[in-house]
């Protein structure tokens, strides 16, 4: 056994090497290893938290988007309502204006017709008066002069002429 070990160059160096490695192992375990594990754990936690936070924020952003979309839709509807109302009111107003204008024109027309009628009546009354005056005149002429047929004819013609000249 000893001969085999000697021929393989195995001696107490083996023990010393194991001892050395155990020392290194203990040193690394105490000084180095906890830092590595700590940093890796921290990084893992950090990444997990970041992912969770990102997910949360994405959800919030999605909610906000939905909210904004809803509000936009609402304001669009409102705007359409307002425009519809306004156009309805405008039409109403236009109709009112037109009706008012029609009424006004009717009123003006009626008053003009009234004026015309009044003038006409006035003219007729005047004509009557003149006819009466003329009749009186004719009568007086008949009375004062001898009336011939020719004279009568002439008088009637004159009367008609006079009457035709009247503005009617």
């Amino acid at each position: 056994m000893g001969g085999i070990l000697d021929s393989l160059n195995i001696n107490q160096t083996l023990v010393a090497q194991v001892f050395n490695f155990v020392i290194l192992l203990i040193f690394l375990r105490i000084v180095v290893y906890p830092h590595i594990v700590r940093v890796l754990d921290e990084r893992q936690n950090y990444i997990e938290n970041s992912v969770t936070a990102a997910e949360e924020e994405r959800k919030q952003a999605e909610d906000l988007r939905q909210q904004y979309l809803a509000e936009m839709q609402k304001s669009k509807d409102e705007a359409r309502d307002i425009i519809q109302k306004a156009s309805k009111a405008g039409e109403e107003q236009a109709r009112e204006i037109i009706e008012a204008a029609k009424a006004e024109s009717n009123r003006i027309k009626e008053s003009a017709l009234e004026d015309i009628n009044r003038e006409k009546e006035k003219a007729v009354a005047e004509l009557r008066e003149q006819v009466a005056t003329l009749s009186i005149l004719v009568a007086s002429k008949i009375v004062s002069e001898k009336i011939t047929a020719d004279i009568q004819r002439g008088m009637i013609d004159e009367f008609i002429k006079e009457a035709g000249d009247l503005p009617c």
């Binding site: 393989l8 160059n9 195995i10 001696n11 160096t13 083996l14 023990v15 010393a16 090497q17 194991v18 490695f21």
Partner: peptide
């Protein structure tokens, strides 16, 4: 050195 490796493997 075989002492190192054999020591560690043992």
């Amino acid at each position: 050195d075989v002492n190192t490796t054999l020591g560690m493997s043992l």
